[in-house]
Amino acid sequence: MTALEVDLAGIKLRNPTLLASGVMGETGDSLLRVAVAGAGGLVTKSIGLEPRKGYPNPTLVELPDGYINAMGLPGPGIEAFAEEMEIATKSGVPVIGSLFAAIPEDFASLAIKMESYGAAAIELNLSCPHAKGYGMEVGIDPDAVHAIVSSVKDAVRVPVMAKLTPNTHRLLDVARAVEAAGGDAIVAINTVKAMAISVEARRPILHNTTGGLSGPAIKPIGLRCVYELHEAVKLPIVGVGGIESSRDVLEYMMAGATAVQVGSAVGRRGLKVFREICDGLAEHMAANGLNRLSEIVGAAHVH
């Protein structure tokens, strides 16, 4: 075990940085490139039952400290995704299959397919803030989440992670529902519901009017969620939201994250961000006499 290695719900990661869902995750070749760039694991684009075009453009707004996106869950559908997984699983790092659906049965049948494609784990998208009938619309109801996690747990053997939304006052209830249903990890957070307006055009910029805010703008929200989740459940937590540097990762780990995901920084910093983070983590460990990253998980819980 090298210093940066972490164990996430039984999955061995060479380092704690995973590619976040929806970023360069729609094709096998682009996933491969992220593995080569140094990511410890890859999460695919959220895949559904059928091909989906997503929303018309504009689907993304660029802000000084982040993005607002309303892609609308475009994707080739689970059947065609077999081909992409065949390529992605050659990367040598765990590939986690992200899924979206509206009802437990559909989540389960998608998960069975993903597992058969070689996914090391399943990530349930219970949190996309802009797709009608999916994501956050099902993910803010603890009972619905319990039913989805239970049915997927019954269907597959690989670990099942639930990705949660910060756009609710019931985050901790939802997380407890994941734990009670036998889920293996919690991923937090997905994007924060937001919008942008053009003053000159006097209208919203995104075609979908609202979208999800990501990037450094949401890091304090992600940190708060991970911190609270760490006190509410025993499950390992994957921290996501605005991570661009090793310091960001250390903050998330001290809040309670076992591993992290990086999304927007791939656009803002480039693919080199994975190596930069890992180099920074190794330096911090050496300077502070740490043998394992797990030593700092939850370290900020002093009260």
Binding site: E26, S30, T59, L60
Partner: peptide, 9 residues
């Protein structure tokens, strides 16, 4: 779509 290297389209 995104133009910024994220969506992969």
């Amino acid at each position: 779509k995104c133009g910024t290297g994220l969506c992969g389209s």
